[in-house]
Amino acid sequence: MKLIIRSVTAIAVLGLSVLAQAEVAVIVSAGSVAAPSKAEAANIFLGKNKSFQGIDQKDWNPVKEKFYSEVTSKSEAQLKSYWSGLIFTGKGQPLPAEADDAAVVAKVANNPSAIGYVDSAAVDESVKVLFTLP
């Protein structure tokens, strides 16, 4: 019985480490001619740059965590605090958010002025990758 529990625990830990190793792709529509840099993407997702419409992910997940920590250097708590301040002062509203990678890809693919981020496994020919976060 203990062997079974240990085996299940080991498999769960391996599964979580694989999720944590997901590569994040920052994407735009395949027809988009502009290619924002990493710094420009940070400003778009912080509402400071309106040249593109940022498409966020609804729930805090490993992809969202990696994107925000690598691109904007903000944690979940810092991001919530940041947006709370902008909302309170009337200076900004959070970006529109989609439920999952497939929804983000679909939204970005259909809008040449949209930018999003997804697990690189969700990328298809309808979008192009600007850069990846390993």
Rank of each mutant, 00 (worst) to 15 (best):
F52E: 04
F52P: 00
Q53K: 02
Q53H: 02
Q53T: 11
Q53A: 04
G54Q: 06
G54A: 02
I55M: 06
I55F: 01
D56Q: 13
D56F: 07
D56R: 00
Q57E: 03
Q57N: 01
K58M: 14
K58Q: 07
K58P: 04
K58H: 09
K58L: 09
D59R: 14
D59S: 11
D59K: 04
D59H: 08
W60R: 01
W60T: 05
W60V: 01
N61Q: 11
N61S: 15
P62V: 06
P62Q: 13
P62R: 03
V63H: 00
K64H: 01
K64V: 02
E65G: 08
E65D: 13
K66P: 08
F67T: 05
Y68A: 07
Y68W: 09
Y68V: 10
Y68Q: 14
Y68D: 07
S69P: 02
S69C: 06
S69H: 09
E70V: 08
E70T: 13
E70W: 06
E70M: 10
V71P: 02
V71Y: 10
V71Q: 12
V71T: 15
V71M: 10
V71E: 04
T72I: 13
S73E: 15
K74S: 02
S75F: 08
E76R: 14
A77M: 14
A77N: 04
S81N: 07
S81A: 14
Y82W: 13
Y82R: 06
Y82L: 03
Y82P: 04
Y82C: 05
W83R: 09
W83K: 04
W83I: 13
W83P: 05
S84F: 09
S84W: 11
S84C: 09
G85S: 07
G85M: 03
L86H: 14
L86R: 14
I87C: 02
I87P: 08
F88P: 00
T89C: 01
T89G: 13
T89F: 14
G90D: 12
G90Y: 04
G90Q: 13
K91T: 13
K91W: 00
G92H: 13
G92T: 11
G92V: 12
G92P: 05
